[in-house]
Simulated assay, not measured.
Amino acid sequence: MTPLSRSLTVEGPGVHRLGRGPLPEPGPGEVRVRVAAAGICMSDREVYDGHRDPAFVRYPLVPGHEWSGTVDAVGQGVDPALLGRRTVAEGFRACGRCARCREGETSLCTAGYDETGFTRPGAFADHLVVPARLLHPLADDADLRAAALLEPAAVTAAAVRAGAPEPGERVAVLGAGTLGLLAVQLLAAYSPAELAVIDPRRRRAAAGLGFGASEARGPGEAEEVRGRYDLVVETAGAPTTAADACLLARRGGRVVLTGMFAPGAAGIDPVHLSLNRLTVRGVFGASSAAWTYAVRAFTAGVLDPAPLITHEFPLERFAEAVALVGAGDPETGKVLLRP
């Protein structure tokens, strides 16, 4: 009997089906991965609800860009030693040839947007096929449940690298969602003099204390520390958080914007920006270098995403799982699908 593989397909906004088909076969330069776990993030919720920019999604689609698994088949030209390896992989299908790719900025590839889980079949399935060149193999004993969060961790790593933290600095993280709490873990490794987490959800902000933050603040308390921080890492993507992050930075400070903002978000005051000589960087996705950074931090034990996971569901309960994401319950952290 021919082996079958399940996949969760979003046919269009609000419409999905769980189907079975032949095992996908890796082509030249590709591997097939047996999925261990796949995270659901707000981008996946936007895909399901039909709110994602049409330039960044292609229906019908098997979502799933945050995942971990084990290589169970290799295509022509791929090292057979990869068989049986636990792994994650970069989502962006960068061309590797354009000027941005040659500079190492693979998330800015000029060949056009192409990403696993958005324009290519993703990991809400038993198996997926990806280019072997995008793999980041893990240790033989790696926790694949936690490793499913290495995609958001790579985005966070891109933000931390852009912010260039130094020991003894005052640092603030604005937003205590998945990206924010992962940022706290990575930033704590630099031994900051202060590491504050700021979030309107008191319980979420307080969770940062368990990840290495020295203090947790709500929005009202944030006004007391305006102009205090050497580095501010914004992770929320809320309408006012870009402007708020700039107000928290000291004169000559650095701000990194990591959240995905919607049209209509409050702008940054150019007068404040200029007079205070702020350096503001944006982050979109993660380069190969950021992925390497995140995987190394995970392997070394500096980064442990496991405590962020609060819910796990089988593929059959996708509708229930996706409904939790973005619903506003402060008790909901990372939601996983476990094929």
Rank of each mutant, 00 (worst) to 15 (best):
V271Y: 09
E169Q: 07
M42S: 09
A38F: 10
A207V: 08
E115W: 11
G163A: 03
G168F: 09
F318Q: 05
V160G: 14
F124V: 02
G301N: 13
E221P: 08
C98Q: 04
A148M: 02
E316N: 08
T332A: 01
T235I: 06
R6A: 10
I309N: 12
V225M: 03
A294F: 15
V295S: 12
A183S: 05
A94C: 15
G208D: 13
R201L: 02
D269K: 15
R170P: 00
A236K: 05
V160M: 08
G333N: 01
G104H: 15
R133E: 04
A89D: 10
Y293D: 01
R93P: 13
T9Y: 15
G19D: 11
Y48H: 08
V15I: 09
Y229L: 12
W291T: 04
R338E: 06
S287Q: 07
L186Y: 10
R296C: 05
E169L: 09
L144Y: 01
R85W: 08
C246M: 05
I309L: 13
R228L: 08
P263V: 15
F298Y: 14
C41R: 01
A321I: 00
W67C: 05
G237A: 13
V225G: 12
T106W: 14
D230R: 08
D304G: 05
F92I: 14
R202P: 14
V31F: 10
P263S: 05
D269E: 00
E115L: 09
H16Y: 15
P28N: 14
L303N: 02
L83T: 04
L18H: 09
R254T: 04
L315H: 14
G253P: 15
S274R: 11
G177M: 05
F118M: 04
C98W: 04
D72C: 00
G50R: 00
A290T: 06
H311W: 02
G122W: 06
R32M: 07
G69F: 03
R161M: 14
D143P: 00
A300E: 08
V160S: 12
L108D: 13
R45W: 03
Y293R: 09
L8Q: 04
A81T: 12
S214G: 00
E312Q: 12
L108S: 11
